[in-house]
Write a protein that binds this DNA or RNA. Structure first.
Lengths: 211, 211
DNA sequence: CACCAAACTTACCGATCGGTAAGTTAAACT
DNA sequence: AGTTTAACTTACCGATCGGTAAGTTTGGTG
């Protein structure tokens, strides 16, 4: 359990960045948790930005590994896609801080352009979109339909994952527990239903232009 | 267009809080945008926290009004529910900063408990949940099933609303425009399909406990 | 004209921020 | 034993933070 000082600093940093965001955290505060001085932290990471970057990279790497481990059966049917997505839910349940931090990064992204393009998300998203695009009903329409559908599913997952404290406060712990208990089955059903329904036929999308 | 200094400060504050979060913003920076001094701002709002609170209240009020305006036909069928939710998408398109700020508040909520319970969200959510719960297939199961379904829809909407800069950067402006163009129809279809499919029958939820 | 409150300003405060510089300590290597 | 190196520490820096105190300007009112 007791690892490197460096790794322990990364773990604390992840926790705090997820909880309070980049600007809400001081490197002295992170070091304090481990009883170290601020300069001990700066000895391992040359700046706050670098530390933050390493935390993000760590999340990205861990996420990739977990996804690759899940994705042993890369079939293109609805079940496989649903399985990949529901696995995400469990992943978020086990690493809630990572999810929160990624959501924060999503909000801060416009100002921090570097950490977008070369991200873990790209590959994962492309995989999912391609699989949906390969389904019978989705093959005939543009790829953006599949991307939109996938992004809606991801939204349903990520938003719920990030909302647990608020939901507990707004309703009750018990009610939230009930929601959490039926979330996976409900999601699975939603994904199946959504994929089975196929892409929405958008009439006015290039055809209605010459009206 | 040129309102109160006070209202203009509120507008700038909303923009900045949405963009950079509470801790990423300085009251001096907000005042600077209007060519005012930091103390001019403190004359109108006695502290940064109070200013932030007023911004949130403003969003809450505006949101309530817009929802009530939309909700002229409170039927309990799937179409009405889908209409209420798709209206939300348009609402977010027109007020992207508000959505971003609310997402930030969702993340910061655990630390800022006051702004949860008495929120706009509660009433809106309850309305939606009740309507789903009143649908034929949903009537027989616990209310938390309806709440979970609604929250999944809200997630699909809010997540997409907040992701536009990232999506543009990750794919392209054109591809994002395609996604945005088909989002509403896709969402409508997803909601219809999800509601029609009914709640997932969770077998082990109180019955499998005595195994 | 006297007065006064609203809407500002400049000046200042202590605290905290991220980061630099210069040691100190202890283990490892030659 | 002497030297190097990693892992820290204390001391300090300028900048910026939110907030206070004390004016100053301005427009309306008796």
């Amino acid at each position: 359990m007791a690892k490197n000082t460096r790794d322990r600093l990364l773990a604390v940093a992840l926790e705090q960045f997820a909880e309070r965001g980049f600007d809400g955290v001081s490197i002295a505060g992170i070091a304090d948790v481990l009883g170290l001085s601020k300069q001990a932290l700066l000895h391992h990471f040359e700046s706050k930005e670098k530390l933050y970057g390493e935390v993000l990279d760590g999340i990205s790497r861990a996420f990739q590994e977990r996804i690759e481990a899940t994705d042993a059966t890369p079939k293109n049917d609805r079940d496989a896609i649903a399985a990949l997505l529901t696995a995400l839910v469990e992943d978020h349940r086990q690493h809630p801080q990572q999810t929160r931090l990624l959501m924060r990064e999503l909000l801060d992204n416009p100002r921090r352009a570097e950490h977008v393009s070369h991200w873990y998300l790209r590959g994962f998203l492309d995989t999912l979109v391609d699989r949906v695009h390969a389904l019978p009903q989705w093959r005939s329409v543009g790829r953006h339909h599949a991307a939109t559908a996938i992004y809606q599913f991801l939204g349903a997952i990520n938003y719920f994952a990030v909302s647990s404290p608020t939901l507990k406060a707004m309703f009750s712990e018990a009610f939230y527990a009930d929601m959490d208990a039926c979330f996976d089955a409900q999601l699975e059903q939603l994904i199946q239903a959504g994929l089975a329904a196929g892409p929405a036929s958008v009439r006015r999308e290039a055809e209605g232009m010459n009206a």
